[in-house]
Write a protein that binds this DNA or RNA. Structure first.
Lengths: 167, 167
DNA sequence: TCTTGACCTAAAGTCAGGTTTAGGTTCTAT
DNA sequence: ATAGAACCTAAACCTGACTTTAGGTCAAGA
């Protein structure tokens, strides 16, 4: 059994946050001795799960729901599993989005490399999409096409598609 | 040139948010005709960058700084590139963290699969770390070890390391 | 001309997720 | 037994990122 201060140390979470979680019902049934919270293995695992679900994008009130299911016992196993499956999809989608973000960042890094080499943005701005290096072109396409756009027609005949000056 | 309503449609961003971004200085030098905002290619690209930097974890005030650098011209190319390089590191780290989250989720899915099969958590709770299936064991280790823990000693002699009941 | 829809501003409101404050209690070592 | 560290609560406060509200302007079609 640990005190709130020990748990705060172990997890690197402020004491105030642990008390806040408790107040929000994230440790249902936590024991106390003369008013002082006692964190056992159950609460430590709950905390790991809280951190996991929080980072997976879940809100506190939904985490509380989960903790309540845990208290209810066997009858909620499948609901709990469904919840984790749902979060799995969410996190995988988020990773996908972050990889797109990475594409934009790679394009921008390349863009400023070019601008630094040239001393200005003129050449790189005037480049057509098909003249971009393979990898950069792919990253560019991934981040500069609206959903409704058709693969190439819309940009084909243009003189320079990187028209936005100075960004 | 587009109106705020058209841009809102194109990007799926509420009008109020676009006005808020403008008020926060995220479109420095945007044109207006008799008070009405005119979004050009520059602003559209700015908006793509805003979405990118926001999702990469950057705050509005830092995005404004970037936009100001853009206005300053050539002298800030290297600062702008450094910024994207920094965000690249951040996003890669975030993807790493999400993959750990995914490990925890995989472990929990497996855990509830077992509980559902057995009708209770007893067997799965009593399992030692080394008895977990390869893949699950790896996921478990990734999410249940504090930084200061030594690889195995601390858990070796224990009777059941999955002691937390009902989570 | 008049109405209607799309635009404008400033200021207040909202929300999640904490953090801080003020005042009090409990544990531990001397 | 007493000081100081670590704990407790309730309630107010904070932050970032919007959103809503209230009141007004502008442009195009009937």
């Amino acid at each position: 059994m640990y005190t709130i201060g020990q748990v705060s140390e172990m997890f690197g979470i402020p004491i105030s946050t642990l008390r806040y979680y408790d107040k929000e019902g994230l440790f249902p049934g936590m024991q106390r001795t003369s008013g002082i919270r006692r964190f056992g293995e159950k609460e430590l695992e709950a905390l790991r799960v809280i951190e996991c679900l929080k980072k997976s994008g879940m809100e506190i009130k939904d985490i509380r729901q989960f903790m309540e299911w845990c208290k209810e016992g066997r009858s909620t196993y499948s609901r709990r599993k469904e919840l984790f499956l749902k979060q799995k999809v969410q996190v995988e989608a988020e990773i996908g989005r972050l990889n797109q973000i990475l594409d934009m960042i790679k394009y921008k890094c390349w863009y400023y490399d070019q601008a630094l080499m040239d001393g200005n943005e003129e050449r790189v701005q005037a480049m057509k999409e098909e003249d971009l290096p393979e990898e950069i072109c792919e990253a560019y396409r991934n981040t500069h096409r609206r959903k409704e756009d058709v693969p190439s027609k819309h940009v084909c005949g243009q003189e320079g598609i990187l028209q936005a000056k100075g960004i």
